[in-house]
Design a protein around this nucleic acid. Structure first.
Lengths: 199, 199
DNA sequence: TAACCCATGTAACCTGTTACATGATTAA
DNA sequence: TTAATCATGTAACAGGTTACATGGGTTA
């Protein structure tokens, strides 16, 4: 869908090589998009052919030559157009939840183990996100405009990981409590959620 | 990745036709997986060819004939195996967050409009999930084992939508507040989140 | 009489994954 | 001397999207 748009966004900032983009997608873009270097190179060729990007060849000594991709005016317009188009909610796809859904067909310990494993992975991710937050936004006072939007996406990532952690904890307790007996009330604060404060 | 597994899980319950599955994926599975009828039919053929499913032909009068798919023992074993294999976190991909990331390249009103639009869609989804929760889990006392896992997946969906709503509200306020000036403190309750109570 | 439900599919295309391939430089 | 970093790609395959196709029965 929007790998192309994610790449164009990343190139609005500054020109980057395919390699740079792959690294970028592994860190500062990972809160909301995921792509391998193979996908990125293929998409870059396509975007160049369509005139949304131009490649600048950089000869280097002591390391491989590279191509820096710059976004063109057509590319910028294409991105702006897409942003202005209202879009649907992105589809949800989650392996762990598929496993849980079929949970009754395996011993409970297997599910509990997998929940613990995922809990730990979310924990790790949360720490990574917090570290990025520290790096980027430690100054007091107003954020420069360039960083406001990045801040919001990162904040979403932190929120989402925090939510996963809490859900994992609940699910583990629920299943350990022999299921069902400890179910709590249906109407809760989530009707009118007390929002977590910003990171 | 796991469309095959999601289909097999759905058939653990009871045999279903492709059409049934498509409807099921549109409602009770939508908290964690998404698939169109084309994908489902293709996957069913494949799963049948591999021996994980058998098709039972049902001739009907007054409406089209159909095929009911039953999971086989091989199919069950295949699913159980997959569940026991530890899996990585599912990748995040979200269009709205890509738009926000590139937010500085369009007028702020466009972003605010899109945020409001998404907020409304998440609201609608949350209501749908709550309605399903009411239907399935209104009884007091212990949940039957068959429903415990479904309950947990649904609960995750409700949690996630609640989180999205709260984030949309925060993002809208943040951007309306001329950005940055109203940023709140970095260390917050999310360090040790007060979990929302179960639905 | 129009739209929706039931029910199944094909075909073309685009996107994502996995494996393979190269090769110099630098840090442990 | 082993592994990681820099840097770019091809090829095959699997998974997902969009458009097309059929056709009777039911509800507004």
């Amino acid at each position: 869908m929007s790998l192309a748009h994610a790449i164009l966004s990343a190139l609005m900032d500054c020109p980057r090589s395919g390699y740079d983009l792959a690294k970028y997608f592994d860190s500062s873009v990972s809160f909301f998009w995921d792509a391998t270097h193979q996908q990125i190179y293929r998409e870059l060729s396509k975007l160049e052919a369509e005139g949304y990007l131009t490649a600048e060849k950089i000869d280097q000594e002591g390391r491989p030559n590279k191509k820096l991709f710059h976004i063109t005016e057509t590319g910028t317009a294409f991105l702006q157009d897409w942003i202005a188009q209202p879009s649907e909610l992105s589809p949800v796809k989650d392996d762990l939840l598929v496993k849980l859904f079929a949970g009754k067909s395996v011993p409970k310990e297997i599910i509990l183990k997998e929940l613990a494993h995922h809990r730990q992975q979310h924990c790790k991710r949360l720490e990574e996100y917090r570290a990025i937050a520290q790096d980027l936004f430690q100054s007091t006072g107003a954020l420069p405009i360039e960083n406001q939007f990045q801040y919001l996406t990162l904040h979403h990532g932190i929120r989402s990981e925090t939510g996963w952690l809490a859900w994992c904890d609940e699910a583990i307790l629920f299943l350990q409590g022999e299921g069902g007996l400890k179910r709590q009330q249906t109407e809760s604060r989530s009707q009118n959620p007390e929002s977590q404060s910003m990171e």
